[in-house]
Design a binder for these strands. Structure first.
Lengths: 364, 364
DNA sequence: CCTGCATCTGACAACGTTGTCCAGGCTCTA
DNA sequence: TAGAGCCTGGACAACGTTGTCAGATGCAGG
């Protein structure tokens, strides 16, 4: 389609001289060749600012003028360029979300909750996955800052976030979720990983278990470390000394988790119960246990879809991913409001959901 | 922190007169008060363009000059404003993704795949959920266009996308996924919903079933309609007349699905097998079947985590969500390259995964 | 008919960056 | 040593929008 103004339309314009319009219309090599307010103004025969006023619903435009402008907008398929607007206004009405893996079912509801809050505040969500790589987290977070997002919700992969200091000082609202920020003072929203794990393990102990295994993620990940700490605390509370061979920490690939589980289930004194440190681990361990001849008790951190339909149902320590996201996003916008000043650390409670697997008695 | 240049630093500057610098430095009310290239240039005692050159790694700057500029960047915590850059350059290196629900496990891998491709092309991903609401889809898609995303991946909620015509003409690359575009000619990447459903139902028929139920989503959703068509085709191929009471289409809330399933399982001639139209329906139906006294066969559209661990394992028609996302995103970037011109409709095959529930014989 | 006021409109600068173009200083050669 | 040519650096305009301010218009009242 030819976006240039037909000659009969041009005649309607009043003040702007022919040459200027011609120059502006000349085909330029820029991508898109989109109509701008200038084009709309020329076509409607009004000034630039009048178009701006119409587009933004500002008062002080006669109905007749407004109609002409609307008509031109329609005819040209004009859409305001928010990039330019942002440059002028300072705020982008968008927030960034750096998470670990968009495909992880735990982060789905979390992202969704963040999005809902953003939407309620008229903001868009830009997000990316760090894949648990601190460099990638930093790269992403800074790229988002370069886009001048108003705020940043970060699920940290690394443990040093001083690189965000200039951004925060420059006014980028920042909230960390799921794991704490490293070496900077910032808002943090967490689950009670320590307490949840301790409760889960204590639950197993209450059902008679003493040899209890723990399979978790790499200990440099805060949640993994906290859950391990909860495990240790529960065992210590019960006066049970923990054998090193009962604990396995590392990447949560199915292969490693499988061999870790198989190992602690073999030997002369196998564990009679396993506490799993996150949903990925739980899934793999369920598979391993399904192949075992004897029954092994299981409590997992994080809930699973269908967990109630397995035989036995899977007892879990559930965290509320949506609440984490919602809380974080709400704090973010309160920072932007100015309602919130002092960084805080918020811990949301977890919930033990008993379904059978955690109530199995020890096999021996 | 005070970002203004200390007096002793100002003296280093050469040409720019005092007054201009003073004016630029004066505290302005704009949000953030971030240092700009101008500030860096002043502090390093060089020209604006030299800073630009350093920031963008362009040639023609002596190492000594570069060092001074880098130092100033460091000291001020400068970060390039990509909004301004975009305004100048035309492309934003970002793409938009409009999906139905970020929290749906089907869309997680899809989003992730789109993100991976975007990342490989140096682009960021902006996304939002339409919640199956056509108006919201349009609002979101147009908001993304206003941000001048280079391209748009849309999982349609509505069935009329003519509103995107001006955008596409203006150069916004567009690909529809999972469901076709309505009333415009555009790239579309789909699963073979019809064929998959037909295969799944044929599988049940091959195992001796004749009274087979179908529970699916609202028929205005393309995938739901196609899957229903596949069901009908398989039944017709086998010469089985379909009773109206065997089919239920509507919102996939647990309540409605539950009552639909219970209804077709009751009465004098209950169905002996059910084909479910998507993962949400499947999950609910599994729960209903678990409460039944007799065994009912089940084949579901979409795979489920843990489906193999249930008793019996759930036979499904699996689609490759990641492949959908990847294919769509790759086509998007090929549109942007100019490698791709003619819109095409691509159908990816589905895969029947037998796990037990689909191989159960009829109960009667 | 002029003044004063209210209403509507448009010219212009600015936002922070990049592309163009030119100036000044250097090296190299005749 | 002068001139040509290269290299480095900087002034300036432009991208598309919005805020400021002043000009134009219309109308009522003196």
């Amino acid at each position: 389609m030819d976006l240039r103004i037909p000659v009969d339309e041009q005649d309607r314009t009043r003040i702007v001289p022919e040459t200027i319009r011609r120059a502006d219309r000349s085909p330029h090599n820029r991508y898109g060749n989109r109509p701008t307010m200038k084009d709309v103004a020329a076509r409607a025969g009004v000034g630039l600012k009048t178009v701006s006023r119409v587009v933004n619903g500002e008062p002080g435009v006669t109905p007749e003028t407004e109609r002409r402008v609307q008509e031109a907008i329609e005819a040209l398929g004009f859409r305001r360029n928010d990039s330019a607007r942002v440059l002028r206004k300072g705020r982008t009405a968008s927030i960034g979300l750096v998470l670990e893996d968009l495909a992880d079912p735990f982060y789905g509801p979390l992202s969704r909750a963040v999005e809902e809050v953003a939407r309620a505040h008229g903001a868009l969500l830009i997000n990316g996955s760090s894949a648990e790589d601190p460099d990638r987290e930093q790269e992403l977070a800074l790229a988002l800052c370069a886009r001048r997002v108003d705020g940043l919700v970060v699920i940290p992969a690394g443990d040093d976030h001083r690189y965000l200091e200039p951004e925060i000082r420059a006014g980028v609202a920042t909230v960390f979720v799921d794991r704490p920020a490293g070496r900077i003072d910032a808002d943090v929203v967490l689950s009670d990983n320590y307490g949840g794990a301790r409760d889960g393990v204590a639950h197993l102990i209450a059902h008679g278990h003493r040899r209890i295994g723990f399979i978790g993620d790499m200990p440099r990940i805060h949640t993994a470390a906290e859950r391990l700490r909860g495990y240790r605390a529960a065992m210590e509370d019960a006066g049970i000394p923990v054998a090193d061979s009962w604990m396995s920490l590392g990447v949560t690939t199915p292969e490693r988790v499988r061999s870790a589980a198989e190992e602690m289930l073999s030997g002369p004194e196998p564990v009679t119960a396993i506490f799993t440190g996150n949903n990925r681990v739980t899934v793999t361990v369920i598979r391993v246990l399904a192949e075992q001849s004897r029954q092994v008790a299981l409590v997992g951190f994080d809930d699973l879809e269908l967990a109630d339909l397995l035989q036995p149902g899977v007892t879990v320590v559930a965290q509320d991913a949506a609440a984490l996201g919602r809380t974080a996003a709400e704090r973010l916008f309160r920072q932007l409001d100015g309602t919130l000043v002092t960084p805080e650390r918020i811990e949301l409670p977890t919930r033990l959901i008993t379904r059978g697997s955690g109530e199995l008695p020890p096999a021996d």
